[in-house]
Simulated assay, not measured.
Amino acid sequence: MLTAAAAVVPSTAPAGAATGTPPQVYGAWHCGNDACTWATVRDMTDFDHANHWLIDRGDGRPSVNLVVLSFVNPLTLLNGTTNSGNADGVPVGMNQGVVNYFTSHGIRVMLSIGGITYTDDWNTALAQNPTLLGQRAAALASRLGVGIEIDYEQSSGPNTAGLQAFIDAYRAAHPYDASGADPTARLTIDVAAGDRWLIDLDQYASAHWLTTSGPVLDYANAMVPSKQPTAAGAESNWQEHLTGKANYSPAIPPLAPAKFTGSLYIAEGSQVRPECTDFPSSVTNGTSAWTQSAAPAGAGTSPGLLGYMFWAAERPATRGVTTVPPNSCEGGVGAGATSFNIPIPMPALRQS
């Protein structure tokens, strides 16, 4: 159990806190203790020791308002596979006990389908039966009371027709819900840090699924780049989504600030990032003024990105740092939640 002394609250608010639009989404991808496979059922006492910082920033309040359990293999889900690590197509560690651990503290939970390791399996599943895959994702969401994130990292020639069929099937079961009241209706997608990777997927998603006039997906996450960016580098990446790429063929249209989050590392390689331990010196704090005031550049009407996502809680890789004590993140993510006054539970999200 962590104590209040573990919390580090900055003495000054981030530069943009007085103006602009504060973050509404403030979440962490979660990889479990086995590098994102979730292949074992967790002892919940051990789970709490490793992850207590997520539900308690040191003063009893959660550090985040969203946790995304990563990853479900799309082909395993389609086939309903049961083996040593999966039950009916779902990692055995992604169970109701883990979901309830977070939701009982007002934290929204989603499951991420995919990840770069499962790109080929996404391609196979979408080629075989994307409608059934969408139906099984919707049934999984209903069973656990969670939302679903699409993490399909096919860099060239993605099967957008198959993904459209997957989304149509999911939305037939769980229609878009602007109020956010139904957790199973939350359906999101991951795109690259900027517009220069996952280009075809980014173009299609921005044009067809992420518009403010007829939204199909709730929002996108601009994923982390290959290494932690500087504040200026992060802002440059995120600006590409706001501006779009008119010179591409087909063009990538602008994305409304209210339709995506920016992402940063909390655990990367062998380094404990300030994102985890030292909010005042973090890239999160360094980008906060820009993130809250970023103006629409052709789409949307309100300024400010939707919020931040952090990669990744507990053990994102077989080697390297974790967010397990003594590296838990009350002083970074948790202190940021205090500084930004993050709403918990997550409110209805801006729509334009």
Rank of each mutant, 00 (worst) to 15 (best):
E149V: 06
V146E: 00
A165K: 00
G157M: 09
V146Y: 02
V191C: 14
G180N: 10
D195N: 12
S155Y: 15
V191N: 12
P175W: 02
R186L: 14
G145Y: 01
A172H: 04
T188W: 09
G194W: 14
P158H: 10
A181E: 03
V146P: 03
A161S: 15
G194M: 10
G145Q: 00
D200T: 13
T188R: 15
D151M: 12
S179T: 05
T184D: 03
G162N: 03
R171M: 07
T160R: 04
A181K: 04
Y170R: 05
A161E: 15
I150Q: 00
D168S: 09
Y152V: 06
T160A: 08
A181F: 05
D200R: 11
A141H: 06
R143H: 11
N159S: 03
Y152M: 01
D151E: 11
P183E: 02
Y176L: 02
A178G: 10
A141L: 06
D151A: 12
A181T: 07
T188L: 05
A141Y: 07
I167C: 09
A185N: 08
R143T: 15
I150P: 04
A192P: 13
A172G: 03
V191W: 08
E153Y: 07
P175T: 08
D190G: 10
R143N: 14
L163D: 07
N159E: 03
I150S: 00
F166A: 03
G147I: 06
N159H: 10
S156V: 09
D182H: 08
Y152N: 02
G157E: 04
H174Q: 06
I167E: 07
D182I: 06
D195Q: 12
Y176K: 11
D168Y: 08
G147M: 01
S155W: 15
V146L: 01
T160D: 11
A181Q: 09
Q164L: 04
L144T: 09
Y152W: 08
S179K: 00
D190V: 14
Q154I: 02
A161N: 09
G162T: 06
E149A: 04
Q164G: 06
D177G: 12
Y170T: 00
A193N: 10
G180F: 01
A172C: 02
T188A: 09
H174E: 13
I189W: 05
A169H: 04
I189V: 14
L140N: 06
L140G: 11
R143Q: 08
D168W: 08
R186I: 14
R186V: 15
L187P: 14
D200F: 10
F166S: 00
D195F: 12
T188F: 11
F166G: 00
P183Y: 13
A172K: 04
N159R: 03
A178D: 07
S142K: 01
P175H: 02
D195C: 13
W197K: 13
V191D: 10
D151W: 14
N159I: 07
G162F: 05
L140C: 05
R196W: 13
G162Q: 03
A173G: 13
S156W: 15
A141E: 05
